[in-house]
Simulated scan of single mutants.
Amino acid sequence: MTASAPWILGLTGGIGSGKSAVAAHFANVGVHQVDSDQVARWVVEPGKPALDAIAVHFGDDILLADGSLNRPLLRERIFDTPDERKWLEALLHPLIREETWRYLAEGTSPYAILVSPLLVESGQWRNVQRVLVVDTPEHLQLQRTALRDGVSEDHVRSIIAIQAKRDDRLRHADDVLINDREPVWLQQEVERLHRFYLTLRGGKP
């Protein structure tokens, strides 16, 4: 990291925790950020080598008629098959990492944010200077996600089960934002954290 490069804050949280809302508030105060989920979509766009490798491995039916990735089918193929999920992660994680750090380095704000639901699981936490975990009680995770995605709470529980355990995320946290109140309060908390982060150098007091 050069003297002019931003230090990197890793932002994570379980499904339905509200990390996207937190990220949006940070963006509103001018903080450069990269969402690893968005990068994961970029690296499998038509014409990218990763998409060709996925089609060879899973078969051409993993592609839609326009040549793009059939994401629901891919999720179905890997959801209950750990070996297939590991194969996909081994293919995509290095590509996602390369693109992610390239975009983060372009930031002009004093710090930049890596938004990643798999910050802990993927080991990305080792490459950031500070970790902010958005935490919320499980019953709120279930309610929010079921309402947002139109799925059952049992389905949400199955997703939670394959993410990092709550205690694992919290163990890696430098800061924890408990998102169990109204949106206005959440925005105020983000602004408070932003003011604090602006006082840091390299993510440290």
Rank of each mutant, 00 (worst) to 15 (best):
Q143K: 01
A21P: 06
I8W: 09
D180N: 13
D167K: 13
V133N: 04
R195C: 01
K204D: 05
L147D: 04
S17A: 10
A173M: 10
V43F: 02
L74F: 06
A50K: 00
L92M: 15
A161K: 03
L170Y: 13
N70I: 04
A50E: 12
A27K: 02
E84V: 11
R77H: 02
H93I: 00
L92K: 12
V56R: 11
A161T: 09
G107N: 01
P6I: 04
P205A: 14
F196H: 09
D154S: 13
A105C: 13
L9W: 07
L118H: 10
V29W: 02
E89K: 12
V190G: 03
S158G: 05
H93P: 03
F196L: 07
V115E: 08
Q141Y: 06
G13H: 11
V29K: 07
A27R: 15
Q129P: 04
R130M: 10
S122D: 10
R157Q: 07
D52R: 08
H32R: 05
Y197A: 00
L9V: 15
L198E: 13
T12Q: 13
I54K: 05
N127F: 12
I62S: 06
P6S: 03
R130H: 12
L170Q: 04
S109Y: 15
N179H: 08
R157A: 08
D135S: 15
R71K: 09
Q33P: 12
S36G: 00
D61F: 00
